[in-house]
Every structure is written in C-alpha cells, then in structure tokens.
C-alpha cells in the first residue's frame, strides 16, 4: 500500500463541487419547506374526526417509513414516466424527497400535538379565543416549538439522504463526485472531499435552523432556555 494523496486535480474542479453543493442545498430547502407543510397537514389529518382521513394519513406514514428512500425515488421516477409525464431529474428528486420527509415530519409534529395538555385548550376556550386562534397559538406553535429539535435533525438527515438522488442522475453533490472520480481516477480524495463538504452543509443547516428557531420562537429567547 503506497499512500500518496493528491488533492490538486480534485480541487481544480471546485466550481463543479460548488454547483453540486448548491443544488444539494436547493433540493434540501425545497423538500424541507414542502415537507414541513405536508407534516403539519398530515399531523392535523391524523387527529381528524373523520376516520377515513386518519386511516389515509396513517397508511401514508407507515408506507413511507417502512420502505427505503432509494426504492421510493425509483417508484416516483418510473411511476411518473409510465404515466407519460416528463419532469427534470431535479423535479423528480425534489418530489420524492418531499414525499419521504413529509411522512417523518407528520409523525414528529403529531407527537408535538399529543404533548399539548388538554387543560391548555380548555383554558383558551375559557378565555373565549376563537377556534383558529386556539389552533394557531395554543396547539400548532407550542407543538412545533416542542418538537423543533427533532424536526430539524430530520431535515438535516434529509439533506444527507438527498445524496441518493444521484442514482436518478440529479446533478447534486454526490453525482458530481461520481463524475469527478471517474474523470480523475482519484476516488479516495474525491469522496473524502465530498464527505467534508456534506459535514459543512449539515453544520450550515443546523446553524440556519438555530437562527430560525430564535426568530420564530421568541419565548425561548426571553426565557434563555436552549432549543
């Protein structure tokens, strides 16, 4: 074994890695925003009075959480194609990731809803708050505040999992790495560099979520408790 590492040829191609990293972040942000919306709707659906809606949301969550992302991506990719719909690899990747993270977000936010004590809602009713006001101020915001750490780690995991979309040739960071390593024959250095970039991206996302948390949950800031 002769270990002579040469990062020169790899680092020369930094604009490609930058493009890949930006695309990964775009995929992750898009899926995070849409996934959070699905998660909130799904969690509301799982607590609905209509048993059909509860069942549909339950099946969605279980089906997604018990099958691999890779298979889900292939199903979306080939499913859309067999319906005769043509989308870019980026759109398919974003859609598959959204469907995936939506199920996890549903489960996490539902746990948040379940943690709201009944007495809080009764107190709000006693104060003559409207149904919408109760849902927004007493249920939704405090629930999300409680599960915020779990929710954001799920979104960071999603960003890492977006590497799997390289398998349907979305041009994100891992796909760039695969291209560069076949071009330079420097596989070890390429994947080390990409691993470092992913670690940086996850740190950036965690910092972003921390700042976002300070912005949307001012109570935490005033109480000076850690998120």
């Amino acid at each position: 074994m002769n270990l002579n590492l040469d990062f020169g040829a790899i680092l020369e191609r930094w604009p490609m890695f930058l493009d890949g990293a930006i695309l990964t972040l775009q995929l992750a942000s898009l899926a995070t925003i849409l996934g959070a919306v699905i998660g909130i709707l799904g969690a509301i659906g799982r607590r609905s009075r209509n048993p059909v809606i509860v069942r549909i949301c339950g099946i969605y969550v279980e089906a997604i959480r018990n099958t691999p992302l890779l298979v889900q991506i292939f199903l979306v990719y080939f499913g859309l194609a067999s319906l005769g719909l043509k989308f870019s690899a980026f759109a398919v990747a974003a859609l598959a990731l959204t469907i995936n993270v939506g199920a996890y977000a549903t489960e996490i936010i539902r746990a948040g809803f379940d943690s709201i004590p009944r007495g809080q809602i009764e107190a709000a009713e006693g104060l003559a708050l409207s149904r919408t006001q109760i849902y927004w101020h007493i249920v939704l915001l405090p629930a999300i505040e409680k599960v915020y750490p779990a929710l954001t780690s799920q979104f960071v995991l999603l960003m890492l999992a977006s590497s799997v979309t390289s398998q349907i040739s979305a041009e994100e960071l891992t796909a760039v790495a695969n291209f560069v390593q076949s071009d330079t024959y420097r596989a070890f250095e390429t994947y080390i560099l990409v691993a470092v970039l992913y670690i940086l991206l996850s740190l950036i996302m965690r910092l972003g979520f921390w700042l976002l948390g300070l912005a949307i949950f001012p109570r935490r800031r005033r109480l000076r408790t850690a998120l």
Partner: peptide, 25 residues
Amino acid sequence: VQLIQGTPLLVIMFLSYFGLPAIGI
C-alpha cells in the same frame, strides 16, 4: 459520531468501494 452523522451513508459506501482500491486496498 459528529463526522459520521454529518456524512451520507452513500458517500461512505463509495469511499470504501471506490476509494480504498484507488489507494491500493
């Protein structure tokens, strides 16, 4: 823990399968 939890499994997979032979393993 921080390093591995910040890296996708796919990249670890590629690193061991394509990376190790590239440095002679």
